[in-house]
Design a protein around this nucleic acid. Structure first.
Lengths: 210, 210
DNA sequence: GGCGACTCTAAGCGCTTGCTCAGCTTCGTT
DNA sequence: AACGAAGCTGAGCAAGCGCTTAGAGTCGCC
């Protein structure tokens, strides 16, 4: 895990906003369970058990199992969007910003692949209202990437016939890292991020000016 | 749907090997239900209902709900592998064969995205033995693509630093089409296939000799 | 030291789940 | 006409589900 996702003390900062501590423990347990078995195959008893609590304790902190998923999904999507926006607002040529966006976005999906798997692949398990809210966040995510690509095209840096289609493909490629990435695998999140940044620059037809 | 996936009469050929007819109807119903809601959220009553039968009828043709998923997964993986192998064995330069493989593989995932969604994303719902069998097929799928890429590198057509990693990325990109593709969307399966073939040639550093 | 607010548990309710089974119908075969 | 096999249904079982409730323990605050 990179330092960016930890407090100076080394504690995971992802769920720092979730309080009190029992609610956070339940949420972390839910992320693990959902990632392992999927939302529908996970029982509230399993979540409570992983958090070291009785099944009823869950309902003191969350109204329903679906609300747990929503909290996870919301925080995860906020973080993913934040990462992309930070890259978009940075100084530098479009190619640099696109590479930066892909690098940090992919690194997050690899590093936190457990969370990302839930965030990216359990969208359909949300209820209609919560789903609509998250879909809106995904639209903004897509718009952010598309803007960078369109700037690159306008600047003559990229050779892209269909910016919208390319955006979908780029995001699809990056998000899917959460599905196959394995912490015991050959490469670190940093390496995968760098590799993917290079792949994406190729996809947009960028020729490095060496 | 392309002619390749139909009989001359126009009937869907994908599940042609499944007999008798009632078993096929149940299987098609299961594909639809699994794709819509996911394996765990689908009830045997829902499947039987879609096939116009009582819940008990399902168990005349299949031992368990998991066996249904396995049949779907097996047939789908066989078909996907067949598509890639056909492209591999064709005449032509590695770039042509890679483009061909991606084009037909992606077209299948777009055209039959309902099936592909189940095949590609419900792997974890399989029992241990069935899962192992399918994982082996996926290994062969990956090996097929990797072989084409390595031939392209050996022939000097491709500029790829990490063939194994590139293979994972290419397959990940293609498979994920099943997740986002929408039949009501802007582009046809043929168009997406052609677009993705071009993207992949860029990813492997192929320079068209125009 | 007493009280309300908060956190948690043991027990369990109502319901749905995957799956079973006795029995009815519909066959092709004799 | 008789019969066994195969396909299917209505009814329902045992288990597990999400969630609720009554009450116990613990805390800060006056």
């Amino acid at each position: 895990m990179s330092a960016a996702e930890q407090t100076p003390g080394g504690e995971d900062v992802t769920w720092g906003e979730v309080a009190p501590e029992a609610a956070r423990r339940l949420l972390v347990a839910a992320v693990e369970a959902f990632a392992e078995r999927g939302y529908h195959a996970t029982t509230t008893r399993d979540i409570a058990g992983r958090a070291g609590m009785s099944p009823a304790a869950l309902y003191i902190h969350y109204k329903t199992k679906e609300e747990l998923l929503h909290r996870i999904s919301r925080i995860g999507h906020d973080r993913a969007l934040e990462i992309l926006r930070a890259a978009e607002l940075r100084d530098g040529a479009p190619a640099d910003r696109l590479a930066d966006a892909v690098r940090s976005f992919v690194r997050w999906h690899a590093e936190r692949h457990t969370t990302a798997r839930v965030v990216q692949y359990e969208l359909d398990a949300l209820g209609p209202e919560h789903r609509a809210e998250i879909v809106e966040l995904r639209r903004e995510t897509e718009a952010t990437v598309r803007r960078i690509i369109e700037e690159g095209v306008a600047a003559g840096e990229f050779d892209v016939a269909d910016p919208a289609g390319t955006t979908v493909a780029v995001l699809s490629l990056c998000i899917d890292v959460a599905r196959w990435f394995n912490a015991q695998g050959r490469r670190t999140p940093d390496e995968v991020g760098a590799f993917y940044a290079d792949l994406v620059l190729r996809m947009v037809g960028y020729r490095a000016q060496k």
